[in-house]
């Protein structure tokens, strides 16, 4: 009873913290410019150790040297995935809505040495349809804003 009374006396006030950013992609600007303007994926290659980074890195984390740009085909292989039946709704940070379930996957893009975390869409979204080893290809969205959600992946039917 005492607890109930105390709870009733609690006063709550709204507060909104707003911080708008206009942030620079720095030396990886080319990746997003190519995504937005030319529907082309790029990775970066270390001239010293040869590792191909995608997401791209302007410097190789192994050798600390500046990397070179190399184009990718936009095709790749799923290394691991999970069917997500849950998302935070009302997410205005996300420019695109995610239909449930959406498939979160680590994709090894052809020509890259690192895994790329992204989403795979499929019409049926049948559990088990997308799995390790599934070949995928990129699909470009319209309009593109220069964000990682400007594209997604679908099963590559070879067409």
């Amino acid at each position: 009873m005492q607890q109930k009374k105390k709870e009733a006396e609690i006063f709550e006030a709204p507060y909104r913290y707003i911080a708008d950013y206009l942030y620079s992609y720095g030396e990886i600007s080319k990746f997003f410019r190519e995504v937005k303007d030319n529907k082309q994926l790029y990775a970066t290659k270390c001239p010293q150790c040869g590792v191909v980074w995608c997401p791209p890195r302007g410097f190789c984390s192994h050798c600390y040297v500046p990397t070179d740009w190399v184009p990718l085909t936009g095709k790749g292989t799923v290394l691991a995935c999970t069917y997500c039946y849950f998302e935070a709704t009302g997410e205005e940070q996300l420019p695109h809505h995610f239909d449930l379930p959406f498939i979160m996957a680590i994709i090894k893009l052809d020509g890259a040495d690192t895994g790329f975390l992204h989403t795979v869409r499929s019409k049926e979204a049948k559990m088990g349809e997308i799995k390790a080893g599934t070949r995928v290809k990129i699909v470009w969205r319209e309009p593109r804003l220069g964000k990682v959600v400007d594209f997604y992946f679908v099963p590559d039917d070879g067409k």
């Binding site: 999970t82 997410e91 996957a105 680590i106 964000k147 990682v148 959600v149």
Partner: peptide
């Protein structure tokens, strides 16, 4: 790279990057 495609939060990220592989 992560936040825009991770509305599933930590359980999804841990499942895809650790548990399932």
């Amino acid at each position: 790279w992560q936040m825009p495609i991770s509305p599933g939060g930590v359980p999804a990220l841990l499942t895809v990057s650790c548990l399932n592989p």
